[in-house]
């Protein structure tokens, strides 16, 4: 049974797609009420891990407990307490933003007044009021992403899981989004998100992990990665050391010579 201090407890989780091992014996605990960052290069297993936490995917082996519930048996209950924005978010293109969100409200059994209040607040914050009656298929990538983010937040979930959430957001929405995440964490919600941007991870996350080739190579509080004079460089250096990409200049030189 999980400790109530932890929103998520992952133990010995493996997941394969055919012969490709996406996660290889992962152990991870994520404290409640914090913003947790998942860093890693493309194809490292970040999205798979987030999908398993969101109970969208089942692990092959190991156990995952979310809010004390087992993701194998209680996945429908877990999903009620989770808001999830996947990396390749696909939503109904033939519905308007408002129609899609009211469908989400029906699924999560949100009352009409409560839904309208939350929708108004989130639409104002994300600057989507003008696009709510547009068909989602007509929206730009960034605006679709905003609708996905609102859909993930509209039922006031305990845990918000976001896979590359800032992709496509304009600077204003990006800034407001960061503020919303901070505010939600202060209210005791757990935020788990993946990103490639070191500066976002540094600025927002209390804790983070670096995942590479399906294994968690390092984890800890963000401050522990930032100790020293050049904190940010240290995090980036740690990342590059783990992912084996230390000699970037040589790589760039090779490409440069190819295109002379």
């Amino acid at each position: 049974m999980s400790s109530p201090d932890f929103s998520v407890r992952i133990s010995g989780v493996t997941k394969s797609y055919g012969n490709v091992v996406a996660l290889n014996g992962i152990d991870l605990d994520i404290m409640s009420g914090q913003i947790f960052g998942v860093l890693g290069p493309n194809g490292s297993g970040k999205s798979t891990m987030l999908k398993i936490i969101a109970s969208v995917l089942q692990p092959d082996d190991g156990s995952v407990h979310v809010l004390g519930m087992d993701c194998r048996t209680d996945y429908l209950k877990i999903r009620k307490h989770i808001g999830f924005v996947p990396e390749d978010s696909v939503i109904y293109e033939s519905l308007t933003g408002e129609e899609f969100l009211s469908l989400v409200a029906s699924v999560y059994e949100i009352g009409k007044d409560e839904f309208e209040r939350r929708l108004e607040a989130l639409s104002a914050a994300m600057d989507t009021r003008g696009i709510m009656s547009e068909l989602i298929g007509n929206l730009s990538f960034g605006n679709r992403q905003k609708i996905s983010i609102i859909a993930a937040m509209i039922h006031d979930p305990e845990i918000l899981i976001l896979d590359e959430p800032t992709k496509g957001l304009d600077p204003r929405s990006f800034r407001i989004f960061k503020n919303i995440l901070t505010m939600l964490a202060e209210k005791g919600k757990t935020i788990i998100f993946s990103t490639h941007a070191m500066e976002i991870a540094e600025e927002l996350c209390q804790s983070l992990c670096i995942i590479y080739k399906g294994e968690i190579k390092t984890e800890g509080s963000t401050s522990s990665f930032l100790k020293g004079e050049n904190g940010r460089q240290k995090l980036e250096k740690t990342f590059l050391t783990i992912t084996g990409e230390t000699d970037l200049e040589t790589v760039a030189d090779n490409v440069g010579r190819t295109f002379q």
């Binding site: 308007t96 408002e98 129609e99 009211s102 029906s106 699924v107 839904f115 009656s133």
Partner: peptide, 11 residues
């Protein structure tokens, strides 16, 4: 554009 949503309905 699409029409207005009918609001929150039973599932």
């Amino acid at each position: 554009h699409g029409g207005r949503s009918a609001g929150v309905e039973p599932l």
